[in-house]
Write a protein that binds this DNA or RNA. Structure first.
Ligand SMILES: [Mn+2]
Ligand SMILES: [Mn+2]
Ligand SMILES: [Zn+2]
Ligand SMILES: [Zn+2]
Lengths: 145, 145
DNA sequence: ATGATATTGAGAATCAGTCTCAATTATATA
DNA sequence: TATATAATTGAGACTGATTCTCAATATCAT
């Protein structure tokens, strides 16, 4: 049984004349099953632990594909590292990122989103996407100092 | 006559047992005079046009120093490039960044800032800094498509 | 002026990400 | 199913940004 996200992804590939490959399916799968934001290197390492070998280039290519299609989003830790999460059946949200443990808390606030749109309009700026990241110390890391 | 920011910077250096060097003064000066967000490479290139030569390493080292001291902030363009601006007598603000021309518009909104703090508190997250960047097309680039 | 110490720039090293290209794979069609 | 065509792949070279190393130099307290 093929999950809904896989179906949707394959429809996208078909509609663009792209091919449904094992690598693309594996990477989407990995993102769907991940419980946290994962780095390209996580994906590369973990998928190569199993059977198949998959190239780094393919990991990056596929992440870009998913991102451009609106199926994945990225966040950036305090040290610059990028991490991805899938967007299937997940509403938009922003992040609080711990500078100690790189733990991520998610939040969303309708008022903030509304004000953003008003500001954009005022400046005649056409917003495409945004990132709103709060860096600090999570509850746990705060206690330990 | 030494400007206030230079005085403050030198106080910081003294208080940390660091030395007041020509390179550090030149880089601060460059930031103070820049009318826009500048990249490390901008600084490196322009300062080397004149007399002195200054190493790339020193540019990065000094930017980190200023950033950690709270005297400079960075933003990141859609393609990942970093740019800096000084924070002397400039209140906090966030950015709208054009994905076409990398032009930057600045905004600040007290309500958004307040809600952020409330959210942080709710999650027992201790915020240190944040970035709120809206990517899209500026008025000019929007017209041209 | 001297000496202790911090700073410097050149260039090597690192790192994430991109590019190249020959071999492989997916898919449409017969 | 076999074939033809075009997209995809992984290895590894390459890139650009940043960091590191270290011997030479500059700063500053004395
Ligand atoms: Mn998230
Ligand atoms: Mn700004
Ligand atoms: Zn933490
Ligand atoms: Zn623009």
């Amino acid at each position: 049984m093929k999950s809904e996200p896989h179906k949707v992804f394959e429809q996208l590939l078909n509609s663009k004349g792209l091919k449904v490959t094992k690598q693309r399916k594996d990477i989407l799968d990995y993102l769907l099953k991940a419980r946290k934001h994962v780095t390209p290197e996580d994906i590369y390492r973990d998928l190569n632990k199993k059977d198949a070998n998959i190239g780094r280039a393919t990991v990056f290519r596929t992440l870009h594909l998913l991102e451009n299609a609106g199926f994945a989003d990225k966040i950036q830790f305090a040290d610059g590292r990028l991490a991805y999460e899938h967007k299937f059946a997940r509403p938009h949200h922003d992040h609080m990122i711990c500078v100690e443990c790189s733990g991520v808390l998610e939040f969303s606030n309708a008022t903030i989103e509304k004000i953003q749109d008003e500001i954009s309009k005022k400046f005649l700026f056409k917003p495409l996407w945004h990132r709103h990241e709060i860096f600090g110390r999570c509850k746990k890391c705060n206690k330990m100092d």
